[in-house]
């Protein structure tokens, strides 16, 4: 579907495609540290239930995923794997950086083995702060991302600032 990325589709069709993408975000099951449990609570627990937002947490392979949540500390040893998994995802793809560790290193800001921010290795669309963020905060991040997807112009995609959940 190179047409979508090129932005050569007529406006109404783009809008239709955007709405479809918005409500069928397949999110890769990818847990790193403490935040993974809060992500699990958001994705698997009946109380938060991410599926009602049209986010489907099923793919166990990055090749089927549209969205990846980097949930937790990225260490220097893990960083190449994160990068490789991101590269395996098909375009258009989105990244949510969940928690202080993934945002900037968090409590391990002075550690010798922690990557200070996953944005050093992959582009991030949404930053969700917290240590760990509550599941509601992650859902807020997802909703904000969906709003952006709804009015997205593919040619302009890489020129935008990331969303920061406040």
């Amino acid at each position: 579907m190179g047409l979508v990325e090129n932005g050569k589709l007529p406006g109404p069709l783009t809008k239709l495609l955007n709405i479809s993408r918005k409500y069928s975000l397949w999110v890769y099951q990818w847990g790193l540290a403490c935040c993974a449990i809060e992500m699990g609570a958001a994705f698997a627990s009946p109380r938060y239930d991410v599926m009602r937002l049209g986010v489907i947490p099923f793919p166990a392979s990055p090749r089927q995923a549209d969205l990846v949540v980097i949930s937790g500390t990225v260490t220097d040893k893990m960083a190449p794997a994160v990068r490789r998994l991101y590269e395996q995802m098909p375009e258009p793809k989105y990244v949510i950086s969940m928690g202080s560790c993934a945002n900037c290193g968090g409590p391990y800001w002075d550690s010798y083995s922690v990557t200070k921010g996953v944005d050093q290795i992959i582009p991030v669309d949404v930053y969700v702060p917290g240590c760990p963020p509550r599941p509601e905060a992650l859902l807020e991040g997802i909703v904000l991302l969906q709003e952006r997807i709804a009015s997205e112009d593919m040619t302009d995609r890489w020129n935008r600032d990331p969303i920061v959940v406040t």
Binding site: T75, Y108, D110, S113, V114
Partner: peptide, 26 residues
């Protein structure tokens, strides 16, 4: 192993005692 090695034992050497509890929580 080591994909989640965050260097706790080194970091405790530069944190005060009350700060260490914040760290070891995790």
């Amino acid at each position: 192993m080591g994909y989640m090695h965050r260097g706790y034992e080194k970091l405790t050497e530069v944190r005060t005692y009350p700060q260490v509890t914040t760290l070891v929580n995790r």
